[in-house]
Amino acid sequence: MKLVQISVFLENKKGRLFEVCSLLGKEKINIRALSVAESEEFGILRMVVDNPAKAVAVLKKKGFVANLTDIVAVEVEDNPGGLASVLAVFSKNDINVEYMYGFVEKFSQKAILVFRFDDADKAIRVLTRNKISIIGKKDIGNL
C-alpha cells in the first residue's frame, strides 16, 4: 500500500524550515517522518504527516510550493543489518530507489523506512512477495 509524502520547495534561508513546521503545528498536523534534501541554493523538505491533503492546502495558502508524491513505508527490525536485508531484496529484483529516509519508532523495536521508487507498484509486489511489512494509512496515524 502506498502512502503520500509532502514535498516542499525551500530556499536555503534562515527560518524557512521553522516556518513550515510551526505552520503545520498550528493546524494540528502531526509530522511522522521528515527529511531535507539540499543542493547549494535550495532544499526539498519531505515529510510524512497524518493529514497530507490538509497540510498541502495550508502550505499552498501561505505561498509555498508543495506537492504530493507516492511513497512506500516499510517496517524492519531495528538491529544491525535491518536495512541491508530490505535493500538486498530490491537489488535482486532490479528495483530502483530514487531516495529514502528512515526513522525509529518509539515504542516498538521497529525502524520505519520511507522509500521513493520510480515504480512503486512493482516495489510493493516484490515487498509483499518477500513478506516485508508495509505500513498503511491507518498505521501512520497510530505510530
Binding site: 514535498s7 520547495f9 534534501a37 526539498i44 510550493v65 506537492n67
Partner: peptide, 15 residues
Amino acid sequence: EVEQKIFSDEIKQLR
C-alpha cells in the same frame, strides 16, 4: 520563481 507545475520532489529534476 519555482511554480507549482515545475516543482519536483527530486533534487535532480530541479537541478
